[in-house]
Structures are given as structure tokens and as C-alpha cells.
């Protein structure tokens, strides 16, 4: 199941085109833009968690670095967004490198804690450095994106922009997974001991994928900031980091399509749950627990398992894939 043919990409493109031209409702476009941005976050984090097997509970900080960098550069200093984009991505990458160097030496829960600490510090910086970030009341006046005469002001145009970027990142991720580097990454996930013994410089590789996922998160932050044009620290708090992890795990780790599925569900779920009004959080929590209890390998793989199980009753699918 690892190697879905490019037919997946074609279906993806068709689905995006169809949705883009059939939908008229601005609200839906807005929602789908958020799904796209969350998909980017999940894709980047999935490379780190699903493939390299390293957890991060602080990725919202990179998301925030992307958003705040572009906000400050464009609104405060009058940069063009397209000049701010590389700055945002580079800054997030540089921070990821410096933070990752000591943090990725940790493993398991300790790594989770280290990244959690970093994420909280990021959030506190966004909130407290008010001369630069606007503090807890937020940052207003981020300009929308334009390329020459094309302005990405409408929901539809931004929808196409975001989902084109998503497609690009999906292709990059899949190329990465199926490469020398990707195999080495996956080998760390399965057995770091053997990976090192066969000559993989696991520390350097973990650091590189950490930087990659931070860069993707910063890209998502850039797209977010220029879409909503107003950002506040609450978007990048601990719960945001946890939500990113949840998207990856709920969708199914080590699967690009799982990340997409996870982002879809976790973005749309709160919208559906509005119907429950005050029971919203209760139901959300229950769904989260329920999915993990029933399908610990995530929805994508979990449903595939159920499907395959029904098709070939005799299969001994005791779960050799992610079974650790």
C-alpha cells in the first residue's frame, strides 16, 4: 500500500478543480482553505513523526514563526509578501536547526517534553513581545497576496493557491519518502540501532527532517497570515501543536493521504460539532479517544485494514507494519 500510483495525484487534482469550480459559498471556500493549510502542517509533521518516528509537541511555534515573520515584514516594514516568504521559511528553518541540535538527542517522552517546552516558549514570545507582535490583542493589517495583476483576495482564488501548494508539497513528500534519504528516515523509525550500524548518520538526518517539517509549517503560517490578515498568539499555542499531532495520528502515521484525511477531519469536525453547541468539546474529546481506542493505527490504515480484512478473511494481518 506504500506505493499508490500517481493516479492518486490525478484524482487529487480533479477533486480540487471540481470543488473549486462547483462551490459558490464563501464560507465553504474559507473552510477548505483552512483544511489546505492544516494539511500542509500535517504533511510536514508526518515526515517527522510518521516516517522518522520523532515526536514534536511544539510545532505550532514554527507555524507561528512563519505567520508572524511575514506579518511583521509586510505590515510593519512594507516588504512584499513574496520577499517575506523566503525570510519566514529561512527563519523557521534556522530556529529549527538551533533548537533541534540539542533537542533531537533526546528520545521518546523526553523528546516530546523538549519540543513541548520549546513550543510554549514560542507561544509566550508571540504573546509577550508586544512591541513587535502586538501581544495578546493580536496583529492586524497583514496585506493580502497578489501576483502581478492577480489578486488572491477572493475565497476561490486563495483556495486554488493553497491547494496548489498542497499538491506541490505532497509530491515533494512522496519523492522524499521514495528516495535514498526517505529510506534512511524510515529505517530510523523501524530500528535506530540498525540504522546507525548500517551507516546512516541518524542525528544529522533527524535534524534535517526536523528543519524540513519546520519549513513546511512556516509556509503554512505564511499562507494563514495572508489569508486571515489578522493573527493572534492563541492560534499558535500548545493546543495547536497537539492538534497538529492529532491530525497526523488520527489520519494515520506514515501516510501522505492519512495526513490529508486527518487535516480534513480535524478542521471540519469542530464545524459539524457546532450543532452540539455547548456539548461540542465533550463530543470532540470523545471522538478523539474513541478513534484512538478503536483504530490505534489511524483512520486511513485502520479503514484499509478493515477493508482488507473483510476481503480476505484468512489474512494474518496482525499488524507488522507499524507494530511497535
Amino acid at each position: 500500500m506504500r506505493r499508490l500510483p500517481p493516479i492518486g495525484h490525478i484524482i487529487f487534482i480533479l477533486a480540487v478543480l471540481l470543488t473549486g469550480f462547483l462551490i459558490e459559498n464563501t464560507y465553504y471556500f474559507q473552510l477548505l482553505v483552512f483544511v489546505g493549510i492544516h494539511t500542509l502542517l500535517a504533511l510536514g509533521l508526518n515526515m517527522l513523526m510518521g516516517y522518522a518516528g520523532q515526536i514534536s509537541l511544539g510545532h505550532a511555534a514554527f507555524y507561528g514563526i512563519g505567520a508572524y515573520t511575514t506579518a511583521i515584514l509586510t505590515a510593519t516594514y512594507g516588504f512584499s509578501p513574496w520577499a517575506a516568504l523566503p525570510c519566514a521559511v529561512l527563519l523557521a528553518s534556522a530556529v529549527a536547526y538551533v533548537v533541534g541540535l540539542p533537542t533531537l538527542k533526546l528520545s521518546g517522552y523526553y523528546l516530546g517534553m523538549g519540543t513541548l517546552g520549546f513550543g510554549m516558549i514560542g507561544f509566550i514570545v508571540f504573546r509577550e513581545w508586544s512591541s513587535l507582535t502586538g501581544g495578546s490583542s493580536g496583529f492586524v493589517g497583514i496585506p493580502p497576496l497578489e501576483i502581478g495583476p492577480v489578486s488572491f483576495y477572493s475565497g476561490r482564488s486563495y483556495f486554488f493557491l493553497v491547494w496548489t501548494v498542497v499538491l506541490g508539497i505532497i509530491i515533494l513528500c512522496r519523492r522524499l519518502i521514495d528516495s535514498r534519504t526517505g529510506r534512511a528516515l524510515r529505517s530510523i523509525h523501524d530500528s535506530e540501532k540498525a540504522s546507525r550500524a548500517i551507516g546512516v548518520d541518524t542525528m544529522a538526518l533527524k535534524l534535517r527532517v526536523f528543519v524540513f517539517s519546520a519549513a513546511v509549517a512556516a509556509l503554512a503560517g505564511f499562507l494563514y497570515a495572508h489569508f486571515v490578515t489578522f493573527i493572534s498568539p492563541g492560534t499558535f499555542d500548545f493546543l495547536a501543536s497537539v492538534r497538529m499531532v492529532t491530525m497526523v495520528v488520527i489520519g494515520g502515521m506514515a501516510s501522505v493521504w492519512g495526513a490529508l484525511l486527518g487535516a480534513f477531519l480535524l478542521t471540519l469536525l469542530p464545524e459539524w460539532l457546532h450543532a452540539f453547541s455547548e456539548f461540542e468539546m465533550v463530543v470532540y474529546g470523545l471522538i478523539l479517544m474513541g478513534v484512538m481506542i478503536v483504530l490505534p493505527r489511524g483512520l486511513f490504515r485502520g479503514l484499509l485494514d478493515v477493508f482488507e480484512g473483510a476481503r480476505e478473511q484468512t489474512a494474518k494481518r496482525s499488524g507488522g507494519v507499524n507494530g511497535r
Binding site: 497537539v242 499531532v245 492529532t246 488520527i250 470532540y284 478523539l288 479517544m289
Partner: peptide
Amino acid sequence: VIITVGASIF
């Protein structure tokens, strides 16, 4: 971890 997070939201 996710289950405990789910429980906290719940």
C-alpha cells in the same frame, strides 16, 4: 498521549 489529550478536552 492522544487519548489523554482527548480526555483533557472531554
